[in-house]
Amino acid sequence: MDFEVIHSYIPLYTQAFLLTIKIGWIGIVIAVVIGIATAFLQHFKVPVLAQIASVYVEIFRNTPLLVQLFFIYFGLPKVGIMIPAETCGAAGLGLLGGSYMAEGFRSGLDAVSKSQTESALALGMTKVQLFRYVIFPEAFSLSVPAVVANVIFLLKETSVFSAISLMDLMFTAKDLIGLYYNTTEALFLLVIFYIIMLLPVSGLGSLIEKKTHLRTAGV
């Protein structure tokens, strides 16, 4: 391993890292928003919209991100819909993530027991209060483990962005291997940067999981 080479590669990787993180987190935010909306539609069985939500979840849960991105990035322009690569990456990740988040939030909502709703109503809470103070906090902490797992999953999925020629970490590594054959150094940095990106999230996830678990258990 040549540390001079590694040193000279670091700026390139940092740039790619920042791009990967940016698109990754934008995608995750989109995913959370879509996920919560979809979960509500499904949980409260809103007519028509709930069915559309289910179709959406099934389609995006059962196809790979790479195929989704190829379709959005290479396929859609042929019918007149041009989307720049970065938007495409964030949108693809958001749509895929939304379907996974929806399942997580929905199981959280479903797990809030009926007696909670009934008790709140018996105490004279309005629907909004019931939702704001009883259902949402409980459902949210119940779905935390699923959400954390999904965030990690989505950050890992960003590695396919290179396929639609986004200059992400994977792209940079592949490019450098192709140009200079410094395979060892390029792969080493790739691993290091992914560890920097995901280890804190993974650790934080375990911590949050412990905390929220305690809260729901009432200890």
Partner: peptide
């Protein structure tokens, strides 16, 4: 848990 499968593929293949 933290390594993307794509990175693992590259590590093993290249």
């Amino acid at each position: 848990r933290i390594m993307p499968q794509m990175v693992l593929l590259f590590l093993v293949y290249f």
